[in-house]
Amino acid sequence: MNDNRSVKEKNLELKPSPEKVKIAAFLCKWCSYAGADLAGGSRKKYPPNVIVIRTSCSARTNPLFVWKSLEKGLDGVLVSGCHPGECHYSEGNYHTRRNFAVFRKLLEYIGIEPERFHMSWVSAAEGDKWAQVVKEVVKTVESAGPNTYFSKKKEDNA
């Protein structure tokens, strides 16, 4: 537990600003992750707010992961896969599309700002598009501001 304290101290040293939104991106390893790599290879600049979690396929991204991310206080989530019809596993992203169409409705119903959840299709050849997607997602999430939905709830309950 000593370790954790030291992390905090050092983080303070680097001064992460509390207003900066933090976004998790679940990328399939075949298309979107490779697209993000290509963006790097071609030195496309984009904001640093998005941290990538690599998955096998966008269909692996359980809506629960998105839920958990928001519940734990992340400000936004992006799920990205191959273009429909180009899935490495031939049909995984169709499942993704269906799963999250329903999930989006659930978020709406609960009252979480739709600006916090995003989906995109980025192929391995679309480094440009990845940079663009990140820019747009960050902008939209910023418009919604920090995610206080669950922390507020906690306070209310207390």
Binding site: K22, A24, R54, K72, G73, L74, S151
Partner: peptide, 21 residues
């Protein structure tokens, strides 16, 4: 890409976030 691994990743990302807010 187990559930445990991915949930672990999410929690690690938000460890400090949760504390701040």
């Amino acid at each position: 890409f187990t559930e445990e691994q991915i949930f672990g990743q999410i929690e690690s990302l938000t460890a400090d976030k949760g504390n701040e807010r």
